[in-house]
């Protein structure tokens, strides 16, 4: 049975809930030109521009646009793509998850963010169980530092800065992840 969010939650669980929602917002925002708008603050991440579908391609589809910055970790890493897929699938697999048939490739940033959405949601549910909470935190820590943060930083570095919402996304994600890592460092 689903637990409802509420102010009576202990701070760590309340925080996990918020974090989980933020991850979902970022996952949506990197998946679709107009995703995540219901969650992410508009002062940090502006709403989609009128030409969102073009701007999104310009920003993020390296198969199509000459100036795009890939959202795939394989494009930013010297690692072999299949090995990276294998590692990521093993991560997801370990925590009981399986790709849907229509999912993006496992190294896509939205998939990685969605995985963090899951782990933080689980932390919100199990935050009162010390062993479970610690397991989830250490997994988040390692996943962030091995995959999501380096990818987000590389995207921030390579993404054009004249693409409004999408440049903001590329800038704000590593900022948020830095907060996350800072926090995880002190857990």
């Amino acid at each position: 049975m689903k637990r409802q969010p509420g102010s009576d939650l202990p701070e760590t669980r309340q925080a996990a809930l918020e974090r989980s929602v933020i991850y979902r917002g970022f996952a949506d925002a990197f998946r679709r030109p107009d995703g995540g708008c219901d969650v992410l603050d508009e002062t940090l991440i502006p709403p989609p521009p009128p030409n969102a579908r073009k701007a999104f391609v310009d920003a993020f589809d390296e198969a199509i646009s000459k100036s795009a910055c890939s959202l795939h970790e394989a494009a930013h890493s010297t690692r072999d793509q299949m090995d990276l897929f294998e590692e990521l699938v093993r991560w997801y697999d370990h925590f009981g998850l399986r790709r849907t048939d229509t999912a993006e490739l496992p190294d896509h940033i939205s998939v990685q963010l969605e995985f963090m959405h899951f782990l933080t949601h689980q932390e919100y549910l199990h935050g009162d169980e010390p062993e479970a909470a610690e397991t989830l935190r250490s997994a988040q820590r390692e996943f962030l530092s091995r995959h999501l943060m380096p990818l987000a930083q590389s995207i921030e570095e390579k993404c054009r800065d004249d693409l409004g919402r999408y440049s903001a996304l590329a800038d704000q994600l590593p900022a948020y992840l830095a907060l996350e890592l800072e926090r995880r460092g002190t857990d």
């Binding site: 390296e62 198969a63 199509i64 646009s65 000459k66 100036s67 795009a68 910055c69 890939s70 494009a75 010297t78 390579k158």
Partner: peptide, 17 residues
């Protein structure tokens, strides 16, 4: 193990890429 500059230059109309 060369990486290729797909994301920089591959698919645009820039005749120099």
């Amino acid at each position: 193990p060369w990486e290729f500059n797909y994301e920089e230059t591959l698919f645009g109309g820039d005749p120099h890429a």
